[in-house]
Amino acid sequence: MYDIADVLPAGTISELEPGTSLLIAGPAMSGKQDLALNLLAAGLDGANGLLIVTTNESAAACLDDLEQRVTSLDHDRVGVVDCSGSSQQQSIRDIATQRVSSPGDLTGISIGTAKLMQQFTSQDISSLRHGLVSVSTLLQYLDLETVFKFLHIYTTRISDTQGLGIFTIDNVSHDPQTINTVMNEFDGMIELRETETGERKVRIRGIPDAPSGWQPL
């Protein structure tokens, strides 16, 4: 089981079955990336490895985000596929990074993740949390059909390797039909929204035993 204790509201879910992939959906600035990183970083307390595909943020920024969450981060357990187009190569200290020229290069992304996974395997790390932030960027570069096919292949890989997948999507910049189609590839969805008073709320769908309805995050 993948431990996610204390990330989501008490009484919802505190662990996830190996092979699960979740989609975090919410409008801009609703905390999707924060929540994704919290769910991913929760594994660094245990013996999990972390493999993040980042489309907007550079690998260096991603590493900073993780260091804010985990005291004495073990750099050997983090790998990043950076397709943000950033050129800050020098600022990445010692985490394994694979660069892909564009978020539209799905073959490059798959090769990058496969290389990082081999590295984890050689370190005997078999429980991997996979992050992909974000699906929305892929949809800016590729048509829905291609992104759908890729998500089918990638979430199947996560399931076949007993990993945990955490993906994000902006559910305001795409129509409901697109979100619904993408959702087909995931075991469950975590929706986020911000109330008028600025409070963040979360709703979990598709995960057995998780209470339905909006809860404060």
Partner: peptide, 14 residues
């Protein structure tokens, strides 16, 4: 899909 070559091959195919 646990196989690296089959995974990358599948993505290349699409």
């Amino acid at each position: 899909m646990a196989s690296d070559s089959e995974f990358v091959g599948a993505v290349r195919e699409i």
